[in-house]
Protein backbone atom coordinates (compact mmCIF):
# COMPACT_ATOMS: atom_id res chain seq x y z
CA UNK A 1 0.00 0.00 0.00
CA UNK A 2 1.10 3.54 -0.63
CA UNK A 3 -0.07 7.06 0.19
CA UNK A 4 -0.18 10.09 -2.05
CA UNK A 5 1.27 13.20 -0.45
CA UNK A 6 2.17 16.66 -1.64
CA UNK A 7 5.72 17.63 -0.72
CA UNK A 8 6.67 21.25 -1.46
CA UNK A 9 3.98 21.40 -4.09
CA UNK A 10 4.87 18.17 -5.92
CA UNK A 11 2.83 14.99 -5.68
CA UNK A 12 4.65 11.89 -4.42
CA UNK A 13 3.62 8.29 -3.85
CA UNK A 14 5.23 6.95 -0.66
CA UNK A 15 4.88 3.74 1.29
CA UNK A 16 2.13 3.99 3.89
CA UNK A 17 4.53 3.83 6.85
CA UNK A 18 6.43 6.89 5.61
CA UNK A 19 7.16 9.67 8.07
CA UNK A 20 7.93 13.36 7.77
CA UNK A 21 11.62 12.46 8.07
CA UNK A 22 11.28 10.33 4.92
CA UNK A 23 9.67 13.23 3.07
CA UNK A 24 12.46 15.60 4.10
CA UNK A 25 15.08 13.06 3.06
CA UNK A 26 13.86 13.43 -0.55
CA UNK A 27 15.69 16.77 -0.44
CA UNK A 28 18.66 15.38 1.46
CA UNK A 29 17.48 17.16 4.60
CA UNK A 30 17.79 15.51 8.02
CA UNK A 31 16.16 16.51 11.32
CA UNK A 32 19.60 17.29 12.75
CA UNK A 33 20.23 20.06 10.27
CA UNK A 34 20.05 23.66 11.47
CA UNK A 35 18.02 26.39 9.81
CA UNK A 36 15.24 24.12 8.57
CA UNK A 37 11.62 23.52 9.53
CA UNK A 38 8.64 21.55 8.27
CA UNK A 39 4.87 21.66 8.46
CA UNK A 40 2.28 18.98 7.79
CA UNK A 41 -1.22 20.11 6.89
CA UNK A 42 -0.52 23.63 8.08
CA UNK A 43 1.00 22.72 11.44
CA UNK A 44 4.68 23.00 12.30
CA UNK A 45 6.22 19.70 13.43
CA UNK A 46 9.27 20.04 15.71
CA UNK A 47 12.34 18.38 14.23
CA UNK A 48 12.56 15.90 17.11
CA UNK A 49 9.16 14.53 16.06
CA UNK A 50 9.86 14.11 12.34
CA UNK A 51 10.65 10.39 12.59
CA UNK A 52 7.47 9.72 14.58
CA UNK A 53 5.12 11.79 12.40
CA UNK A 54 3.28 9.61 9.85
CA UNK A 55 2.05 11.04 6.57
CA UNK A 56 -1.53 10.09 5.89
CA UNK A 57 -2.97 9.92 2.40
CA UNK A 58 -3.42 13.45 1.06
CA UNK A 59 -0.98 15.02 3.52
CA UNK A 60 0.44 18.38 2.49
CA UNK A 61 4.08 18.77 3.52
CA UNK A 62 6.26 21.87 3.38
CA UNK A 63 9.98 21.72 4.15
CA UNK A 64 11.69 25.11 4.34
CA UNK A 65 15.12 26.56 5.00
CA UNK A 66 16.33 29.94 6.24
CA UNK A 67 17.59 31.86 3.25
CA UNK A 68 18.43 35.39 2.20
CA UNK A 69 15.60 37.87 2.58
CA UNK A 70 14.90 41.46 3.60
Amino acid sequence: MSVNVSINGTSHSLSEDSTLADAASLFGVTPGESGIAAAVNGRVVPRRNWTSTPLGNGAIVEVVRATAGG
Partner: peptide, 17 residues
Protein backbone atom coordinates in the same frame (compact mmCIF):
# COMPACT_ATOMS: atom_id res chain seq x y z
CA UNK B 1 20.05 40.14 10.46
CA UNK B 2 16.75 39.35 8.77
CA UNK B 3 16.27 36.06 6.93
CA UNK B 4 13.42 34.53 4.95
CA UNK B 5 12.04 30.99 4.77
CA UNK B 6 11.69 29.24 1.44
CA UNK B 7 11.27 25.68 0.20
CA UNK B 8 14.53 23.78 0.67
CA UNK B 9 14.98 22.81 -2.97
CA UNK B 10 15.06 26.48 -4.01
CA UNK B 11 17.69 27.51 -1.47
CA UNK B 12 21.30 26.95 -0.57
CA UNK B 13 22.52 26.39 2.95
CA UNK B 14 25.20 28.42 4.67
CA UNK B 15 23.47 31.71 5.46
CA UNK B 16 22.30 30.70 8.91
CA UNK B 17 25.79 29.46 9.74
Amino acid sequence: VTVALRRVETTEGGLYE
